[in-house]
């Protein structure tokens, strides 16, 4: 541990070097940038594998067997082992067939969780929230807005919600010429929804730019602090 701590200046230099290698992309794509990216991918993959083994696979598969012996192979342990072995068969095309069972299990569980969560966590609550916002007696919890100001905000909020939902509805009818067209009202409302989506994305763009600017500022500060530490003593 102390050895590692003594290597911290080297680590800082290494970090600064790698930061410069990545920022060199501002000039143009170059070898240094590609090298830094490949180093990152390799290291991140290696680290992810090591933590998956240590934090999941060993405690769930190996440790029960090691600590409990063969007697630990009950139904709750044999099945995961079998599933893991079957999933391993997916690595080769000739034996990929049995590997579909564990994948089907994962997909089934994931799909159910997504459906259940979307229904209970987003669809119902958000719909209720939209309806509750129409209550003229309600007070905006954060800003404390009431009355006309709140109603105006609620109208805008509802208009944004409804028009955005209409925009994502692509059901159309065929007219006499065989072309699929929506009704005029739906077209206009969808266009308004498109504007609301553009507005939302504009806010997200500004937020993302702000976040990236904060990171850039942190990186520049890191480099400057290193430079100052070298020149400043």
């Amino acid at each position: 541990m102390s050895n590692i701590a003594s290597l911290q200046p080297l680590g800082t230099l290494l970090a600064a070097l790698l930061t410069m290698m990545v920022l060199s992309y501002l000039v143009g794509d170059n070898v240094l940038f590609r090298l830094a990216v490949h180093i990152f991918v390799g290291m991140a993959a290696g680290y992810a594998g090591s933590i998956a083994v240590h934090n999941v696979l060993i405690p769930r598969l190996i440790t029960p067997v090691v600590s409990g012996g063969l007697g630990a192979f009950n139904s709750l342990l044999i099945v995961p082992w079998l599933l893991v072995l079957m999933l391993s068969l997916k690595a080769w095309r000739s034996t990929a067939g049995p590997g579909s069972l564990p994948v089907a299990l994962m997909v089934g569980v994931g799909a159910a969780l997504v459906v259940g969560g979307a229904v209970t966590g987003t669809l119902v609550p958000q719909t209720i929230a939209a309806m509750d916002s129409l209550d003229p007696r309600a007070v905006t919890p954060l800003t404390g807005e009431t009355g006309l100001e709140r109603m105006l905000n609620v109208v805008v909020l509802l208009a944004g919600t409804i028009s955005t939902l209409v925009y994502f509805q692509f059901t159309a009818r065929r007219d006499a010429t065989g072309q699929a067209t929506r009704s005029r009202l739906a077209t206009w409302v969808a266009y308004v929804g498109r504007l609301f989506i553009a507005l939302t994305f504009g806010v997200m763009y500004a937020g993302g730019l702000a976040a990236a600017m904060a990171v850039l500022a942190e990186r520049v500060q890191f480099l400057l602090s290193l430079v100052f530490s070298f020149f400043g003593g």
Binding site: Q126, T161, F196, L199, T200
Partner: peptide, 10 residues
């Protein structure tokens, strides 16, 4: 308000 309405629809 405005972005929240669009975000809720999204």
């Amino acid at each position: 308000v405005w972005a929240a309405g669009g975000a809720r629809g999204i």
